[in-house]
Amino acid sequence: MTTLPSSTQKKLGLVIDLDTCVGCHACVISCKGWNTENYGAPLSDQEAYGANPSGTFLNRVHSYEVQPLATSDKVQPAAQLFHFPKSCLHCEDAPCVTVCPTGASYKRVEDGIVLVNESDCIGCGLCAWACPYGAREMDAKEGVMKKCTLCVDRIYNDNLPEEDRQPACVRTCPAGARHFGDFADPDSAVSRLTAERGGVDLMPEQGTKPVNKYLPPRPKDQLDSAEHIDILAPYLEPVADTPKGFIGWLDKALEKI
């Protein structure tokens, strides 16, 4: 059924910390690995070793350059670089679900995960058109829509050790920039993290009410202010003010010309 549930018992999703992400793309690779070998059609590649390689990914890491706005303290703040992992945000008001003509796309009442039933998908692509985040990709080999499942085949999987029962991207992140949990529970780690760090929605004006939250980068150390430079500056003073010996004679001789 492609009508959305009015509420879900849990709201499972991710917190992505833009302050911590180092842009290593490990989440991209582990996601591709797990989701190629497990639930649903594999994530295919086209011309993987050819001139024009492309493939299906459920998680991609963009990089953005930011010029912070000038303030009275910092007239010319230093430009910064941020890595920006993006996967399905499992929106509460998911526009991708309601447009689906076949019922292949649905949002689960029990945990809020947005999934695609691949055997019902006709590959019309309308859900990908409806998603503002680019979270859905049509697999070129299988002709069905692929998207993040929040590793639904890991998080409830009793055959895995308990520490592995979280999405592959979260499990693999070496920087601890991704966190998984239930946003419906105000005391969960992800809810508290979001509250403490002021987690935000992407494109709130699109009205999708994303479950996944992004933690904005914290202010950086102010290396461009004078007091920080002073610590080492005395040691960088020139040792010899005036050259001596042959160089000194040469210097004076050249000055006179």
């Binding site: 390689p53 930011v66 010029q67 058109w129 680019g134 992407l202």
Partner: peptide, 30 residues
């Protein structure tokens, strides 16, 4: 809707590097 609302990053945001060197479904379709 701008790159600012899309990324929620503070200041003037500019795309620095795409996720992959190659193209993908999103770029071809949208």
């Amino acid at each position: 809707t701008t790159l600012g609302t899309a990324t929620q990053l503070p200041g003037t945001v500019r795309a620095f590097e795409p996720p992959h060197t190659g193209t993908n479904y999103l770029l071809r379709e949208f």
